[in-house]
């Protein structure tokens, strides 16, 4: 599933990022990369930005970009 479909406030592990090299690089600079655990905090309505927690930082990601971030629930 992608980040938009994922549940809020559970640990999610990033499976892959299906974006071009540049997009991946920008995400990576913020620490968003494969294998990392993130949490979705909230999602603005009407295809608004998604707020993520990654480590101790909070990041806002646009809707279209979030569609490219594929995640899985990390479980316990």
């Amino acid at each position: 599933m992608n980040l938009i479909q994922a549940k809020s406030n559970v640990d999610l592990i990033i499976k892959s990022i299906s974006r071009g090299r540049r997009g991946r690089e920008r995400l990576m600079n913020m620490g968003i990369r494969e294998g990392v655990i993130i949490r979705k905090l909230s999602q603005q309505p009407f295809r608004g930005p998604i707020i993520l927690k990654i480590g101790n930082s909070t990041v806002a990601v646009g809707w279209r970009m979030a569609e490219f971030i594929l995640v899985e629930e990390a479980g316990e």
């Binding site: 920008r26 995400l27 913020m30 930005p49 707020i51 930082s57 909070t58 990041v59 806002a60 990601v61 646009g62 809707w63 279209r64 970009m65």
Partner: peptide
Amino acid sequence: SPEIFTEIPP
């Protein structure tokens, strides 16, 4: 028109 992508500091 790229989307928002920004850190939100505490």
